[in-house]
């Protein structure tokens, strides 16, 4: 199993007119890992996400999933192969209940309604949203909606889950809960790639961190090493700052 990485990004390049949003980015994600992608605003993290999940077509480079090339596949095909994702701005289906939202995801692997419902209930229990089953999706708080969005993604039974800033805007208690949820997701056998600004979560969860600045990967390594790396500090804070000691 450890031979081929679950996700491999090779020399990914994405241009928007004159703007080079991703420039020759390469990294791999192994089965069962949690890898964080960090970097200042506008570094190209979301673009990278969109290229991997089929929302953008990269200008150059390859994306391999389980050894198979998925670079130019449509987003729904990529989802069927086992990559689920969430959005930076939380996206749920507003005129549905919590359960119906998750059922919509579960229908991917269970065409029958009763089976989809069963699966959705199981996931909502797992995500701690079971009490809100029949509530309207719009009645949830931001934290609840993020939890729901993760549940919808899990309902498609992904091998790899990619989360775009699922911690943003949470209070400290909610943050602890979300971190705990993601740990349980990993324990259930799902590999995670997260784009995150909340360093507390990055430090606690990640096995490895990939740092992107101005579209390029500048550093990759364990979280403790990455945060003291001079290049990383420079990228976030500018030239005048150095790591102490």
């Amino acid at each position: 199993m450890s031979a081929a990485p679950l996700l491999e990004v090779r020399g990914l390049t994405k241009r928007f007119g004159g703007l080079l949003a991703n420039d020759d980015v390469s990294f791999t994600v192994g089965q069962g890992e949690i890898v964080s992608v960090i970097g200042p605003n506008g570094a190209g993290k979301s673009t990278l996400f969109n290229c991997v999940t089929g929302f953008y077509r990269p200008n150059a480079g390859q994306v391999l999933f389980g050894g198979r090339e998925i670079t130019r596949l449509a987003a729904d095909r990529i989802c069927k192969l086992g990559i689920a994702r969430t959005f930076q701005i939380v996206q749920v289906i507003t005129d549905m209940t919590v359960l119906e939202n998750v059922m919509t995801g579960a229908f991917l692997r269970s065409a029958r309604r009763s089976a989809a419902r069963e699966k959705a209930e199981e996931i909502l229990r797992f995500a701690g949203l079971h009490e809100k089953l029949d509530a309207a999706a719009t009645s949830l708080t931001i934290e609840g909606k993020k939890r729901l969005e993760v549940s919808m993604a899990l309902a498609t039974r992904p091998k790899l889950l990619m989360l775009d800033e699922s911690m943003a805007g949470l209070n400290p208690v909610e943050l602890r809960q979300m971190i705990a949820l993601l740990r349980r997701v990993r324990e259930s056998g799902v590999t995670l790639v997260i784009v995150e600004h909340v360093m507390e979560a990055v430090m606690e969860l990640s096995d490895r961190v990939v740092v992107i600045n101005s579209g390029r990967k500048i550093v990759e390594g364990p979280p403790k090493e990455v945060v003291v790396n001079p290049q990383v500090i420079q990228a976030y804070l500018g030239d005048r700052y150095r790591a102490r000691g």
Partner: peptide, 10 residues
């Protein structure tokens, strides 16, 4: 709701 949300659900 949105084409994007539908696509990510497969």
């Amino acid at each position: 709701e949105s084409h994007d949300v539908a696509k990510v659900l497969g």
